[in-house]
Design a protein around this nucleic acid. Sequence first.
DNA 1: TAGATTGTTAATCGATTAACAATC
DNA 2: TAGATTGTTAATCGATTAACAATC
Lengths: 213, 213
Amino acid sequence: MITNKNCIIRLSRYKNALYRLRESGAVKVFSNNLADAIGVLPSQVRKDFSFVGISGNKRGGYQIDVLIGKLNSILGKDELQKVIVVGAGNIGTALMKYNGFEKEGIKILACFDIDPRKCRRSGKIPVLPLKELKDFVIAHKIKIGVIAVPDSAAQAALDIMIASGISGVLNFAPIALKPQREAVINNVNLELELESVIYFVNARAKTERGSAI
Amino acid sequence: MITNKNCIIRLSRYKNALYRLRESGAVKVFSNNLADAIGVLPSQVRKDFSFVGISGNKRGGYQIDVLIGKLNSILGKDELQKVIVVGAGNIGTALMKYNGFEKEGIKILACFDIDPRKCRRSGKIPVLPLKELKDFVIAHKIKIGVIAVPDSAAQAALDIMIASGISGVLNFAPIALKPQREAVINNVNLELELESVIYFVNARAKTERGSAI
DNA sequence: TAGATTGTTAATCGATTAACAATC
DNA sequence: TAGATTGTTAATCGATTAACAATC
């Protein structure tokens, strides 16, 4: 099994590039085309494919249709991926309104919030009371959830999610979560992402000033 | 100069942990305390400090106050970091409403949108017409910007930003951007982050089914 | 066949971890 | 002094890149 997150993300990028290539009329593709398309080396492409057991034709490259099919299967696009969001705040709402998930076969079935004033049963994606999370997740056999609650509520949210059978979490709370049993947790910390940009810009500015002397 | 983004992110985490330690009354700290606090090895802590020229006292650890000061200086917290956001959609709005930036010395001065209906001069953070971006960025000497516009508008947004003097960008558009001159670009792709969780959950499920046979 | 491309093995690179001499 | 901790050097690890035999 692959454990390299970068590899998975590249597989997604290959797939997106392949859709564009197919639309422009291409039928087959070589590792160097794909490499150019996403900005890596051809050997990286072949290595990634080798990791996940994708093979092409010596000298003949890869059939785009076949390749898209294989990548979709590997990335879990064969079936609809059902997701819930916990926390109907800014980030949670942004995710619910985001249109890009549908075309990727990802469907946010519901959002949950502890604040009854934020709950709305009507609407394309219902916002339900947190209490209902467990039954909902079990009923819909949901495995993936997003945590978009304040820091102080994040661990409790995770505990409920895990207890309900969720085993993969995308976490936006800037806090280290401890799952009660093994789970996939992917942390996205927007503050740190912005801080890292700030650091590198400032560092560059300092270096340039320094070297100008 | 450090080029390792992970290292910078750890420095931020050390700093946050140090604030907590100081609040609980601690005055000095050892590399293993910090390591425990953020979940890395003590040698990683010392290595990171060595990268950025932070030194402590042999046998005496590090003075928390001094250490916080040094980290803040390295991370650019000495001065207010002024940031603009381009795109007043879901993500842009979520960032504007997010309260965590202020305590980190990050201030979103304004948001810009091409759609005049989204513009509001009043309000804590004004939403201004995109046309005004250049003058605003020059007038306020802004170096950092966030791209939160749809894919199709992202490259144009970057071009305007770069032309206005911005040299660091946090980009939420799921597209590869090409800066017209050298710039720091940090891409956050929420879709890929979620897809990677989905992959690892599915992969684990498959492996477990496989190994159960 | 000659030439091009894959798939895999080997080399490189960068980051993390371990080890340990210096020293407080 | 003996013991503990730093700071740095060396070893390890994992991922990326290069090289090349296999082969279409």
